[in-house]
Design a protein around this nucleic acid. Structure first.
Length: 502
RNA sequence: GGCGCUAUCGUCUAGGGGUUAGGACGUCAGAUUCUCAAUCUGAAAACCCGGGUUCGAUUCCCGGUAGCGCUACCA
């Protein structure tokens, strides 16, 4: 891993030609830490990295940031990989685990120490905590006080000999400022006096994020660091390290954060944040991806529903917004419905089958066993589905004979006691309809309504509840045709019994 | 607290020194109809506040305010 090929990094903006060349060698990475599931914010970061790589014919690398051994979990790595794969964000290299690169981080730490850019700090966590608390009590801003910054070599040797563990800290210049040009936020500058001597290597020898991220981005030849804006304030620390290492800095692009409806950072409190949760709720990967892409990026032309190819074509970091965005579930739902409606029949059939199987409806009467009408039923429902879940939920009566009547639907359309007899009569007449087409069913029902001088709607609505359990469904006669005479007659007869006792 | 970043309809955003401030989701009304979805038509809905610069600021500058982020031997 240490001898991974270095990739020349061009000083991008100095020369127009240089920029072109550089773009041909784009290398980006998505670097989640396995301390949680794949968050939609992380997914968007991954998506932008992926789009950027594809747009410029570059390489998309996956890296697992598991240097926090206490909080990292192996099963979460699997979940993250699955989430990315589901979204179609496949990686060209990796996954690389930071936990396997410890030697390299220590080597870089030693180099920094040798060159005087870092020094050992013998302060214990407890000591630091005390001093921090004291400073806070006096309402003093706390920053590492540099207690070990200028320890004489003899003192360091003595402490080491005494077996005192030491962390390695970066020696931040006391004056001047550190600035960098961000692709999204433009120029960001920070006075060095605001930056503390941060830890590079913990006293147990494990690297912190700052060291491992710089080491890896350097070794992997990353040209563009595209990550969440929560890293914006820490970027100067890393820029300082690149310089201390005598290495060129990559380009940075920080992405605004995704917030919940209350404008707080999106978290479990707001409901589902994991990509997997949306999958389970019946959201299509392309819909979630499209929705996420639009959260902070405006494609040229402003078209909202756009296939992945068009996203790749038009992706531009310069068109990424600087301000945080609220995750709007309503819009996601709309977009999902939009994608569901546009799904080629074959693909939808497969997904519906999968959904029915997941809830144990697959073998039931009305499901795939009646192949000829399965496709017809799904297509009748297609324009009305918001998620895949609808097929096993509100559309259940189309795939199973075991379904409940929605209480509100009954209340609304089964008010008339006389309806019991009418539904039974309708069942009897429908039993003779041949062929059982929507037009013939309609003629039959309307004929009955006319004879009894009733409004057809009364009968239609009552029958809808009887056949589907719902007040809301596709056109009744289409439903009849798709359900078939046997089922229609049986359901109407069954419903009539509800009125008998009333 | 310190530091950084951000600020256009409820939400995602376009725009930009002179515009009827545009689009999308959502909302409301209407058309259609057996309910719904879809579709079509229409409506309500925004430039955070205060100073400057300017003939003219929503746009540029400064300040304020608010929100978010960072401020760990987390990432």
């Amino acid at each position: 891993m240490n001898d991974h090929p270095r990739h020349t990094f061009f000083c991008a903006f100095s020369h127009p030609q240089a920029k072109l060349v550089e773009m041909a060698n784009v290398r980006v990475r998505f670097a989640p830490s396995p301390t949680g599931y794949l968050h939609v914010g992380g997914a968007r970061t991954a998506l932008y990295n992926w789009l950027f790589a594809r747009r410029h014919g570059g390489v998309f690398i996956l890296r697992i940031e598991d240097t926090d051994v206490d909080r990292s979990k192996a099963e979460l790595v699997t979940a993250i990989l699955e989430g990315l794969t589901w979204l179609g964000l496949t990686w060209d290299e990796g996954p690389i685990h930071q936990s396997e690169r410890l030697a390299r981080y220590r080597e870089l730490g030693a180099r920094l120490e040798q060159s005087g850019h870092a020094y050992p700090c013998f302060c214990t966590s407890d000591e630091l905590e005390q001093r921090r608390a004291a400073a806070q009590a006096e309402r003093r801003a706390w920053k590492y006080d540099g207690a070990c910054r200028n320890l004489p070599e003899a003192e360091r040797a003595r402490l080491r000999a005494a077996g005192r563990p030491a962390a390695l800290r970066f020696r931040v210049p006391e004056t001047g400022e550190t600035a960098f040009d961000d692709e999204v936020f433009d120029r960001v500058a920070l006075r060095n006096s605001e930056i503390e001597d941060y830890v590079l290597l913990r006293s147990d020898g494990n690297p912190t994020y700052h060291l491992s991220v710089v080491a890896d981005d350097l070794d992997l030849g990353i040209t563009h660091v595209i990550r969440g804006a929560d890293h914006l304030s820490n970027t100067p620390k890393q820029v300082l390290m690149y310089r201390a290492l005598g290495a060129p800095t990559p380009a940075f692009a920080h992405l605004p954060l995704i917030l919940g409806p209350d404008r707080q950072r999106l978290s479990k409190r707001h409901g589902a944040t994991a990509v997997g949760a949306y999958r389970e709720q019946g959201v299509l990967p392309e819909a979630l991806g499209n929705f996420l892409a639009l959260l902070g990026w405006t494609p040229p032309g402003g078209k909202e529903i756009l296939p992945i190819e068009e996203m790749i074509q038009g992706f531009d970091l310069k068109a990424v917004s600087k301000s945080n965005a609220v995750f709007d579930l309503e819009k996601l739902a709309w977009m999902n419905a939009e994608y569901l409606r546009a799904l080629p029949p074959g693909r939808l059939l497969g997904l519906v089958e999968e959904e029915l199987r997941a809830v144990g409806l697959a073998g039931q009467a009305g499901a795939r066993d009646e192949g000829e009408t399965f496709a017809a039923r799904v297509s009748l429902l297609q324009s009305r589905a918001r998620t895949l879940k609808d097929f096993s939920g509100s559309f259940r009566a189309f795939f199973s004979d075991q379904f409940d009547y929605d209480p509100e639907a009954k209340q609304k359309y089964w008010k008339e006691p006389a309806l019991g007899g009418l539904l039974a009569e309708l069942a009897a007449r429908l039993a003779d309809v041949e062929p059982f087409t929507p037009a013939d069913c309609e003629k039959c029902l309307r004929g009955l309504a006319e004879e009894k001088s009733l409004k057809a709607g009364l009968l239609i609505n009552a029958a809808r509840v009887a056949l589907t359990g719902q007040a809301v469904a596709p056109g009744l006669f289409d439903v009849m045709a798709v359900l078939g005479p046997k089922r229609v007659v049986a359901r109407l007869r069954h419903s009539a019994s509800f009125f008998a006792n009333a």
